[in-house]
């Protein structure tokens, strides 16, 4: 091990990382927003008694889980404009692509969370005259959300890591910025190490929070 690390160089280029983190966070937020909204909708559809709602959701979820996200991203960026005649920017394409992909997994988290609540709960809610929406909002989801937090944080961490695939669409997120930096400095070890550490610092607080919440809710029981 005679490698001489040059951390000074990283410090000199810190602005590059700050820029990369910014784009990564923006990408994460948009993808999360799309994934959550669509995921909740798909999850509710998937839990429905009506086959007309259940089937399309099931097909969507299966298609997006069975194909590689890289292919989905490239398809949305290159094929969709030809079919629809609308060209989205690269950040928008990446956000939508990662959002649509995550929605399939988030839908499954919602569905499993809802299914894990005992049927007696919805019986009780119905017996006092509650409708489907009221029972969902006030009785089922508040309980289901607690069970969904750990898998959801998991999915969130995955989603944030998936934003690195934005580099394929030339989105200037953290990994893409880092690769540009490597091309000009020839210091891949330092740069990749910092990228890993930065992602760790971004994601770990959420994992910590999830564990704290779980602990608190368990005590409550």
């Amino acid at each position: 091990m005679n490698y001489s690390w040059q951390w000074q160089l990283i410090w000199d280029y810190r602005q590059v990382f700050v820029r990369g983190v910014e784009v990564t966070v923006i990408l994460t937020c948009w993808a999360l927003l799309i994934g959550m909204a669509l995921g909740l909708l798909l999850g509710l559809m998937r839990s429905s008694r009506l086959a007309a709602l259940r089937m399309p959701a099931a097909i969507y979820i299966d298609v997006f889980r069975a194909t590689p996200i890289l292919v989905q991203l490239v398809w949305i960026y290159y094929a969709l404009p030809i079919l629809l005649g609308v060209q989205m920017g690269n950040i928008a394409s990446a956000s939508v692509g990662i959002g649509l992909h995550s929605a399939a997994y988030i839908a499954e988290i919602f569905r499993a969370g809802i299914a894990s609540i005992d049927r007696g709960q919805s019986d009780a809610a119905k017996s006092i005259g509650m409708g489907y929406g009221q029972a969902m909002r006030r009785i089922i989801l508040p309980q289901a959300v607690r069970r969904m937090v750990p898998p959801f944080i998991n999915e969130f961490a995955t989603l944030m890591k998936l934003t690195t695939l934005g580099s394929v669409l030339a989105v200037n997120e953290l990994l893409h910025e880092a690769e540009n930096l490597i091309n000009s400095t020839y210091r891949p070890l330092e740069v990749y190490t910092v990228v890993a550490v930065v992602f760790g610092l971004l994601i770990y607080p959420f994992i910590w929070l999830s564990q704290r919440l779980e602990h608190r809710w368990n005590k409550h029981k």
Partner: peptide, 24 residues
């Protein structure tokens, strides 16, 4: 209609074997 069903349900109280209280 869902509304009428809910209305008539609200006029009958039900008590279950497994209580089914809302735990939260």
């Amino acid at each position: 209609s869902e509304r009428n069903i809910r209305r008539v349900r609200a006029r009958m109280g039900m008590v279950f074997q497994s209580f089914n209280l809302f735990p939260h």
